[in-house]
Design a protein around this nucleic acid. Sequence first.
DNA 1: GATGAAAATTAGACAGAGTCCAATTCCTAC
DNA 2: GTAGGAATTGGACTCTGTCTAATTTTCATC
Lengths: 143, 143
Amino acid sequence: MNKLQYTRENLADTLRRHGINPTHQRIEIAHALFSRQAHLSADQVMAIVNEKHSETSKATVYNTLNLFRQKKLVREVIVDPSKVFYDPNMEPHYHIYNLESGELTDIDASSVRISGLPQLPGGVVAEGMDVVIRVRPESDNNS
Amino acid sequence: MNKLQYTRENLADTLRRHGINPTHQRIEIAHALFSRQAHLSADQVMAIVNEKHSETSKATVYNTLNLFRQKKLVREVIVDPSKVFYDPNMEPHYHIYNLESGELTDIDASSVRISGLPQLPGGVVAEGMDVVIRVRPESDNNS
DNA sequence: GATGAAAATTAGACAGAGTCCAATTCCTAC
DNA sequence: GTAGGAATTGGACTCTGTCTAATTTTCATC
Ligand SMILES: [Mn+2]
Ligand SMILES: [Mn+2]
Ligand SMILES: [Zn+2]
Ligand SMILES: [Zn+2]
């Protein structure tokens, strides 16, 4: 499925293919997301990118993640009311969200069949569908 | 479907049935949500409850909405990264979210059929499933 | 009706995510 | 190497939501 290594060179090409000028900061942010194939918050991206030596500002992290989203290089996952997650997996897929741990897991969409959705109201076009299964550890009476 | 009027008296009974002590503030907050049958943010609830004369603090609005959620009187809808919506409709249903206007519309779940979802990982139990169709006005190249 | 304890409410300080802006730095084309 | 547009930066700012200690309300018991 993932044919190529996430080297800086390959990532720069990917950025160019998405119409994004591949700067040093942008490549590092892309590397953080793609090499891990994980759902990361802006804060987590910031920490990863600056762990060796500080080199990318908060403003740039937010600017870049929004740019990536606009250019459809990553998608946003809105499940935690306190922060957005960024997902480098653009294949159609759904999520399991553990309310206790905050852990976010992918569900492959190819096996899932959804039918009976109504017509959309006029004048709008669907941009995507999010499916989130909220789960809790067994026998947990809280929150 | 909604057999009874949302009078303060009936709402007080509903609160009691959910194990919630029906105080003046809690009844007003319930009334804001149920009489409108709308998806409201904490801020909107606050504005409605205080529009005649200020009588409910921000802390109480947040406390009460969280209490209602715990007691399963309302549900949270997480679609806007900047705020949570509270939904008095506890019937299984899904949502259409207009990314441009922020408008949130219900989709009746009874006609929707979802199959092929994988087994949940062990040790967790599903608390619910959220389905959100993100839409945009036709021919809108932005955001 | 007074008394006291538990429950609820409150103002305002606080925290964290995300945005904005003006100043600086970086790239690229000449 | 110069000019100009693009990108980055620190830090102030906004907004949603939480926390806390003080006050008010509720309610059972005398
Ligand atoms: Mn570096
Ligand atoms: Mn009133
Ligand atoms: Zn994912
Ligand atoms: Zn709804």
